[in-house]
């Protein structure tokens, strides 16, 4: 099964959503339409991920929600068992009637996942497309991100792995019930079903959703005025466990915003939006990458170049404002002609 990774740089979709959207893309579902409202408000992301220290995966669980999937004729069925002996026959049954089953577990036990194996608890999703009986027991064929070094490298497509029954069992049963790791994993196993939908009805519904979303959408982009002061504010930096945690959090905010814009671009491209509008959003993304670049240079060099950071932040602020103004003036989007 050659599923291509949709969010190649893991900037907007968490592991499960990325697997799910990538699979739907492989099934020729017009997944770009799922991102009609992907443009995140900058201060929402800042408040959640930076100020309130919310796990980015939890914040991003709202992307591509079930109700939008339903509009495209896709429904999810979730299984909540916690016993592996119950799970295994369900995987087998699931694979008889579906191409793929998605199972949540703890990445600490996945021997190929070199960034977390035996070192940290991390909620992770397995996309299983084949189960095989071998001499040494059952094995599961999956696709997942590539982990070929001590650091996970984004920007590369999925690869196939084979997971033994022992590893799958440990992955599944060792989810913690306390803080964090299994909060998203109440739905232990998920399968997707497809139903015929009237294309014009679906497009009309998405168009209506988009119009409502755009009417409500606003962003003052205060984040870009805030960033230069954050790197000088010892009380803010000191509120994190380490300086590295501070930089990790603030660059995560920027990365997530970049990812949200890259997904919104895919919606604009799919719906044949004005090339001018798309170019403006691309410029906005580049300017944000400039902010992140300077922040990371400060992070790794320890030298605060405030002039450059302010220049880059002001540029991003202006580009964001220009794009939003242009988006509001482009009200002629007509999905029904697609």
């Amino acid at each position: 099964m050659e599923v291509r990774k949709y969010d190649l740089n893991d900037q907007y979709l968490h592991c499960r959503k990325n697997q799910l959207v990538s699979y739907l893309d492989y099934k020729k579902i017009p997944v770009d339409l799922l991102f009609y409202n992907a443009l995140e408000r900058s201060m929402d992301v800042y408040d959640s991920v930076f100020a309130n220290r919310m796990d980015r995966n939890h914040y991003l669980d709202k992307a591509a929600p079930e109700e939008t999937l339903n509009l495209l004729g896709v429904t999810s069925t979730h299984y909540t068992m916690t016993d592996f002996e119950q799970l295994q026959p369900e995987i087998e049954n699931g694979l008889r009637t579906h191409d793929i089953v998605f199972v949540y577990g703890n990445g600490r036990f996945l021997d190929y996942k070199l960034d977390s194996y035996q070192t940290k608890d991390i909620l992770h999703s397995l996309a299983i497309f084949k189960m095989e009986q071998e001499n040494e027991g059952v094995s599961y064929h999956i696709f997942d991100d590539i982990y070929d070094g001590p650091t996970y490298m984004s920007g590369r497509d999925y690869v196939h792995y084979k997971v033994s029954d022992k590893v799958a069992r440990e992955f599944f049963i060792n989810q913690r019930d306390d803080e964090g790791v299994n909060l998203l994993a109440k739905e232990r196993m998920t399968v997707l079903d497809f139903h015929p939908v009237d294309q014009q009805t679906a497009l009309a519904a998405i168009q209506e959703n988009y119009a409502k979303w755009l009417a409500d959408y606003d962003d003052g982009f205060e984040l870009y005025k805030l960033i230069p002061s954050l790197v000088q504010d010892e009380s803010v930096i000191g509120s994190f466990n380490t300086k590295e945690d501070f930089f990790e959090a603030i660059t995560q905010v920027i990365t997530l915003l970049i990812g949200s814009k890259k997904h919104f671009i895919r919606f604009l491209q799919y719906t044949n939006s004005s090339p001018e509008l798309i170019t403006m959003l691309e410029d906005s993304i580049s300017s944000m990458e400039g902010v992140r670049f300077v922040l990371n240079k400060i992070r790794f060099s320890g030298r605060v170049d405030l002039v450059k950071l302010t220049q880059k932040s002001d540029l991003a602020f202006n580009k964001e404002q220009q794009f939003l103004q242009a988006l509001r003036s482009h009200t002629n989007l007509n999905l029904l002609t697609l």
Binding site: T151, M153, S154, G155, F293, N296, K297, R299, F300, S301
Partner: peptide
């Protein structure tokens, strides 16, 4: 990856 690039840039700049 992008983070390692920034680390290298910082080393090269110095």
């Amino acid at each position: 990856d992008s983070l390692r690039i920034v680390k290298l840039i910082v080393a090269l700049e110095a």
